[in-house]
């Protein structure tokens, strides 16, 4: 069994976003592997560990992005992924265009299972997993919070419009992750050392014949001015009285 797990390099959640010249400027910001992708890498590693004895599982981490995206691939390898594939590009690809790249790599690798983040933390997209599944004519399970392999079947739980469902699906399939799926491991020092020798295959995007389907015209940060009237609550009733007064008279949001 071969598992492809997608990794994207995104802005660290603690960092603030900056826009310069109508585009998000990541220069000098801390970039990390998308948390949603950490769940995918971790889950792939768990499936590999659970399969010991049976058919071996290989975990391939895949990134599509600029040179720096290799850092996230290295993180995946340090967590335990077997090797990496890096499709190098500075082009901003939307999810539909990107899914064509992922599907081509998956076909070339003869992949049986793909993990993808439930939502990408940079473009807030939820489309990549489903679009890839459609291109491969595979089923998909989105927002997966529990997963287990039973032979050729994946048994799990995922979140839907209201509440959640338990499901069964035969692989090959695409699984998108959700917080709660697992607790991603930290790379240990020996694994970091070992990962340096692991292979990352580089391919230029040009080889895929893909063009973006969307054009970004501009980006802006809409800062809503906040009043930031913060009261000291040592005297709880006095603070409460003052807050309610402001909500009634100033903000007009309480009757």
């Amino acid at each position: 069994m071969r598992i492809i797990t997608l990794v994207r390099q995104v802005l660290d959640a603690e960092e603030s976003v900056r826009v310069r010249g109508g585009a998000v400027d990541l220069e000098g910001s801390k970039l990390v592997m998308d948390t949603m992708d950490e769940y995918g890498v971790e889950e792939a590693l768990r499936l590999r560990e659970a399969a010991s004895g049976e058919t071996p599982v290989e975990v391939v981490a895949l990134a599509v992005g600029p040179e720096r995206a290799e850092e996230s691939l290295r993180t995946a390898l340090a967590m335990g992924a077997d090797r990496g594939v890096h499709v190098v590009t500075n082009e901003l690809l939307d999810a539909i265009a990107l899914s064509a790249v992922v599907a081509q790599v998956a076909r070339g690798e003869g992949a049986d299972l793909i993990f993808c983040g439930g939502q990408q933390a940079d473009w807030d997209s939820q489309a990549l997993g489903a679009a890839t599944a459609e291109r491969l004519q595979w089923p998909q399970a989105t927002w997966t919070s529990q997963l287990e392999r039973k032979g050729s079947t994946l048994v799990g739980k995922h979140e839907v419009d209201e509440g959640s469902e338990t499901f069964e699906v035969q692989w090959p399939a695409v699984v998108t992750t959700q917080q709660g799926l697992n607790e991603p491991r930290y790379p240990t020092l020996p694994n970091i050392m070992k990962s340096k020798k692991k292979e990352i295959r580089k391919q230029p995007l040009e080889a895929f014949g893909i063009a973006p389907r969307l054009k970004v015209l501009g980006s802006e940060i809409q800062v809503k001015e906040r009043k930031r009237k913060i009261l000291d609550g040592k005297d709880a009733s006095a603070a409460a009285a003052q807050l309610v007064k402001m909500l009634r008279e100033e903000a007009g949001v309480v009757a």
Binding site: R226, G233, A236
Partner: peptide
Amino acid sequence: IFKITDYGIVGDVKEIVPALIAEL
């Protein structure tokens, strides 16, 4: 959270919330 707050109280919610309910 206070960075995007219009009105806030720094305090223990166990004291603040009952006081707020009483005030409302």
